[in-house]
């Protein structure tokens, strides 16, 4: 029973729920602020994403005549719930270790696919042609980036499992424990192709500029979420905020989970790593690149990240 309560708290309060949402929105605020400073603008207040969410709560939700109302209104909820559960699966070194009863790395991989699917369903349920374009682009992009992600996860799992004397382990706690004794995978040359592939993967999964093709504001007018307004749009913002925490947290857990033993130190180091990962991989990248076309992104992903991921898997298995 206490186990169930602990899981519920993990999903609703820390590290999922309230904490993940607040952190995701704060990261977004830092991102927008730093982006503005890099363009020598003043930029919005750091709390801007929180203001946006509160504002959307006051607006009215409109359902287009062409939309399937039930699907249109309830899909974003599915996305938010899946991301809250996923956030409870992401470990924070020496602060939080997910309960084996919620799941492991494999469950996390499945949960990470749900926001993309939610965007696809939302786009097609809205009955808007822009939503349909967003749907097809999201689908193509997902096919392109899911493959490398699975291979990266497999490489890490096999590396850990073989190091521990077995075959493959998908427990994130074991992966972190292994790296704490044997050094982080970030400094392990065998894992470098996987690290590189992950660096390509996470901007695509989070919809950051070179790969924000499904939501491209200037061509398909935010694609799948074009018809959403008010609280339902806020749900999408919440989903993407929590997703950012989940994906960056996954990256930290897979490749660089080292942290001091104390509770406060562990959390602090985790937050710093997350901020650095976001500023390098998201803010700078999104300001310094232009948007790819969907065919370019598709070919790019099937060429480089997939190649790197396959290479890393092969190297891990052979070495």
């Amino acid at each position: 029973m206490s186990n169930q309560i602990a899981i519920l708290l993990a999903v609703l309060l820390f590290p999922g729920g309230v904490f993940a949402l607040a952190l995701g929105l704060a990261l977004k605020g830092v991102d927008r602020r730093v982006a503005a400073r890099l363009q020598s603008r003043v930029g919005p207040p750091l709390m801007q994403p929180f203001f946006d969410i509160i504002k959307l709560g006051f607006k009215r939700t409109m359902v287009p005549a062409a939309a399937n109302e039930t699907v249109f209104l309830y899909t974003p909820l599915v996305g938010v719930v899946s991301m809250l559960i996923a956030a409870a699966l992401v470990p924070i070194t020496s602060v939080y270790a997910p309960d084996a009863a919620i799941g492991n790395l494999l469950v996390l991989l499945y949960l990470l696919m749900i926001p993309g699917i939610v965007l696809m369903i939302a786009g097609s349920a809205s009955g808007s042609p822009y939503g349909a374009i967003g749907f097809s682009r999201e689908m193509a992009l997902m096919i392109a980036y899911e493959g490398p992600l699975v291979l990266i996860a497999a490489a890490v799992a096999i590396r850990t499992g073989m190091g521990m004397g077995g075959w493959a382990t998908f427990s994130l706690n074991d992966i972190i424990a292994y790296q704490q004794t044997h050094g982080a995978f970030l400094f392990d040359p065998v894992m470098w192709p996987a690290v590189a592939a992950f660096c390509f993967f996470y901007p695509a999964n989070l919809g950051i500029v070179p790969f924000d093709i499904p939501e491209a504001e200037t061509e398909v007018l935010e694609g799948p979420i074009i018809e959403y307004s008010g609280p339902t749009l806020a749900l999408f913002k919440v989903m993407s905020a929590v997703k950012k925490v989940v994906v960056l947290g996954l990256g930290i857990a897979l490749f660089f989970p080292l942290a001091p033993e104390s509770l406060v130190g562990g959390l602090l180091v985790w937050l710093i790593k997350m901020a650095v990962l976001m500023l390098i991989g998201i803010t700078v990248v999104r300001l310094s690149t232009g948007r790819m076309r969907i065919d370019q992104a598709f070919v790019f992903f099937l060429k480089w990240p997939l190649l790197l991921a396959v290479a890393s898997l092969a190297v891990v298995v052979v070495v």
């Binding site: 927008r32 603008r41 003043v42 930029g43 919005p44 203001f51 979420i225 074009i226 749009l233």
Partner: peptide, 20 residues
């Protein structure tokens, strides 16, 4: 940069449904 309206919290949005 000179007249940045993002400091007021403004953001241009692509869809009329997101607008205030």
């Amino acid at each position: 940069p000179r007249y940045d309206v993002e400091r007021l919290g403004c953001q241009y949005c692509g869809s009329p449904k997101h607008a205030d």
